[in-house]
Each structure stands twice: as structure tokens, then as C-alpha cells.
Computed example of a mutant assay.
Amino acid sequence: MQTETTTTAAAAERAAVRKTVLMCRPEHFTVTYKINPWMDPSIPTSTQTAVQQWQGLHDAYVGLGYGVELIDPIEGLNDMTYAANGGFTLDGKAYGAKFTYDERVPEGPAYMRWFGDHGFQVHEPVHVNEGEGDFLLSNGAILAGHGFRTSLESHDELRSIFDREVVSLRLVDPSFYHLDTAIAILDETNIAYLPKAFDEASQAELARRYPDAIHVSDEDGAVLGLNSFGDGRTMLIAARATGFDAQLRERGYETIGVDLSELLLGGGGIKCCTLELRR
């Protein structure tokens, strides 16, 4: 167990890396169809509440000194607020999304237009993928999920476009259908994850690469506690993920709890609403 002195020292050593992110205000958010286990069209949703909660996340990023850029929401695209799914950016390049479900397909071209208009070299996808929902940058490598929303073939596209190591990880639990619901990037070299979300081979690979990773509880996973985002010093996490909050603080991270319970009705949380821009 870490002592208070050790924890304080770890916190002092953590340096925040300035982030720039893309977000989409949930002006048209509602749940009218079911494409993941979290969605239930029979449960009423409040667009006003979703916007208010989203604004809290936006303002927290601004308060931490993030650059926050916005893409205009499009009427009829209920899930466009989950910006992470819109693509993956690195080294000034943007790999566009090609969505699994028809309801979200128009988001792909919309995000690619935004990338092109804002200086990125855009690569239109051949294979199905849902962007940073399934692609996470860690220590120079791209952790890449597959099994539900993103095809394994898209991982080869990633390799050819970005010339980075791509680590394929198979998701097996439908409740954790994107990689960013099952892994949180804490800083350049550290992660937290939910082992049961992955097959045995992927669990073994994660254990090999990250022997000191945080393993979160089923309870924190169930409120999308891992769907979080941070700058290497401060993590923004689901307010209800109290166990994960304690684990992070023990490692010397600062935390900010955010309530996105309304957007959770659509199957998304903090990271789902956040696409990192790496120019």
C-alpha cells in the first residue's frame, strides 16, 4: 500500500500535457433506437439535461487549459455528440470512421469534412471502424479494439497510414463494445482496464505490456468509469466510479468527477464525448 508521502511525491512528479479536443454539443441527443445494451427507447431522455451535463464536461476541460474545438451537430444524428467515434487523429493525419450501424453512417463524412477544413490530411476508410472509440494511443503504439464495432481489417489501415505499432485487442462483453469503455489511458505509459471485457489472449497481452495497470471493479465498469480522459495529471471520470477515483488518487492522480448520466442512456460517457486532436 502506498503511504501518503509516496502518493504526494507521485502527484508532484506528474506533469500535465496540454490537450486539444473536439466535441459536439448534444443539441439533438435522444434515444430512438437500440444499437448497444445501454440504449432503451422506452426510457425517456432529456436533451436539455444532456446539454447541461455536456456543458459541465466542456467547462472542466476549459478550466484545465485544454483547447476545445467544436463540430456543429446535425439534426437527425442523435449520437453525433459521441465525438470520439468520428475518427482518429495523429501526426496531422485523420483516419475517418465508417460506422457499423446505418443510423450513424452519415457521421463519418461529417467528421471527415471537419478534419479536412481544419488542416488534417484525411484518409477515407475502406474498412469498418469507429474511430477513437476503438483506437487509443499509448506509449507510441495504437491499442486497437475489435469484436463489436470495428473490424480487424481496419487495424491494417491504421498501420499503413500512421506507421505505428498497432496492438489488436478483442472485446468480448457486449456492454463494453468500444475499447474506450474498457480501457482508460492515464498517461503516456499507464492504463486502467477491465480484464473481463477482453478475451484471454488480449488479457495476457495487456498484462505483459502493463504489469502495473489499475484493474477496475465490475461496479465501476458498469457506470462506464473507464470511459474517462485526462492530461497525465488530472483525470476526468464518471462521478459514480468512486472505487476508480480512490485507485487513481492512490497513484497520485488528481480527479474530477463528472455526471454524464443522461448521455449514459445512449451508451456513452466522458471519453465518448471527447476526440483528441493531434496535429
Rank of each mutant, 00 (worst) to 15 (best):
T3L: 08
T3Q: 08
T7F: 01
T20D: 10
P26M: 05
P26L: 03
D40M: 06
P41Y: 03
S42Q: 13
I43K: 15
Q48T: 13
W54P: 03
W54E: 00
Q55P: 05
A60T: 14
D72W: 03
I74H: 14
L77F: 12
N85D: 06
G92H: 12
Y95G: 03
G96H: 04
P109K: 10
A110R: 12
H118V: 14
V122Y: 07
V122L: 11
E124M: 13
V126Q: 15
V128F: 10
V128M: 15
E132M: 10
E132P: 01
G133E: 02
F135G: 07
S138T: 13
G140Q: 04
A144Q: 09
F148I: 08
E153S: 14
E157N: 11
S160D: 15
E165C: 10
P174G: 12
F176N: 06
Y177V: 08
A182T: 09
L186R: 05
I191Y: 03
L194V: 11
K196P: 13
A204M: 11
R208Y: 10
V216H: 01
D231M: 04
M235I: 15
M235T: 03
L236D: 02
R240I: 01
G243A: 12
L248H: 01
E250Q: 13
Y253R: 05
T255K: 05
D259N: 12
L260A: 02
L260H: 00
L265C: 02
I270Y: 00
K271M: 07
T274M: 06
T274W: 00
L277V: 07
R279W: 11
